[in-house]
């Protein structure tokens, strides 16, 4: 059994390396994205094998489930903008692109050599670092386990993320909010406007799956208190539901009101900041939670953050703010229509 598992691990590692190589050398962007998605799925399997189910879940949900579609959406926009369809390019055209790439690579060979040398140095350094790690591993696992009772949750990962090192997570949530603000500043969604053309099978499948996805997202947030799960994983699953709604044209973006969206996007960060301030007022320390109320407070915080993270990731996918949010008429490329600008 042990040998079988070692063989499986070895196969997994080799497949990951092969996929990474294929991803990097592929000149077809669409193919590279598919390789990226496969890589992410196998990577989450690798995390499971390394006994890190929390990371595995985050990798599967955010790293693969959401980043893959994000890339695909970006590719689609590039194609629309370029006025051609790279996905359906016949083989001849693809080869031409490939040869152009090769030609450019030959030109860049001194730079390429430098990059290769630096990468080899980095890889060597990493291997050396892994080799000199003292065993048994030094860590704070015992300290975390010792003070787990004060955190209000039973899952050490959640305890560290939201209570002991809540500061880091606060900043992460803020970074996500900043990302959403940036995306909203760039353009309005959908960009460019598209004609709804959804297969009835897709609509039926989304109708079937949607309640379950929402249930699973909520379950993951709830489960974070005592098992693998949490706001990020639950939020990612929630955003998957929103992405499905978006691509099936159930949500009509141009008509969407922006105020509820804005409230949803800021709910998590707002609750986090309020809790931080609450910690200063009551416990005299930033983000320190009273021990007796820590459990419910953390659950509330996770629910709010999960909702905001889900909305934020879906906003990334939508790629812009709803058109009703614009105060000027949207930028249309050729005719610069000047709307009633509010000053």
């Amino acid at each position: 059994m042990k040998m079988l598992l070692t063989g499986f691990d070895l196969l997994l590692a080799l497949t990951l390396l092969w996929l990474a190589w294929q991803l990097l050398r592929s000149t077809d962007i669409f193919k590279a994205i598919i390789f990226f998605i496969c890589f992410g799925l196998l990577m989450s399997l690798a995390w499971v094998r390394m006994h890190a189910p929390d990371v595995a879940l985050a990798e599967a949900a955010i790293g693969t489930g959401l980043t893959g579609p994000l890339f695909l959406a970006a590719l689609r926009r590039i194609e629309r903008k370029a006025g051609k369809n790279m996905m359906s390019e016949p083989a001849g055209n693809g080869e031409e692109t490939g040869s152009r790439w090769k030609a450019r690579n030959r030109e860049m060979s001194p730079l390429l050599w430098t990059v290769t040398a630096l990468t080899c140095c980095l890889a060597g350094l990493l291997i050396w670092t892994v080799l000199i790690i003292p065993r048994p591993l030094p860590g704070l696992a015992d300290q975390v386990a010792g003070s787990l009772a004060e955190s209000g949750v039973n899952n050490p990962v959640t305890a560290v993320l939201l209570n002991f090192r809540g500061y880091d997570t606060l900043l992460e949530v803020m970074v996500l909010l900043l990302g959403a603000i940036t995306v909203w500043s760039i353009t309005h969604a959908p960009f460019p406007p598209r004609v709804p053309d959804t297969s009835p099978v897709q609509k039926a499948a989304v109708r079937l799956l949607l309640p379950l996805i929402c249930l699973i997202g909520g379950y993951l947030v709830w489960q974070g208190a005592y098992q693998t799960g949490g706001a990020f994983q639950g939020g990612a699953v929630l955003s998957a539901a929103l992405v499905l709604l978006l691509i099936s044209d159930f949500l009509w973006l141009p008509g969407m009101r922006s105020l509820p969206l804005r409230l949803g996007l800021t709910l998590g960060p707002l609750v986090f900041v309020l809790l931080a301030g609450f910690g200063i007022l009551v416990e005299k320390t930033l983000l320190r939670l009273p021990v007796e109320y820590a459990g419910p407070l953390l659950l509330f915080l996770e629910a709010a953050c999960g909702l905001s993270i889900g909305l934020t990731l879906a906003a990334f996918f939508a790629g812009g703010r709803p058109a009703s949010d614009l105060r000027e008429t949207p930028y249309s490329g050729e005719a610069k229509g000047k709307g009633p600008a509010e000053s």
């Binding site: 297969s199 897709q202 039926a204 499948a205």
Partner: peptide
Amino acid sequence: VLVLTASSASCHLVAR
């Protein structure tokens, strides 16, 4: 059941 739903729907979409 979930895999059945998802795979049949996605296969249909790819073919379409």
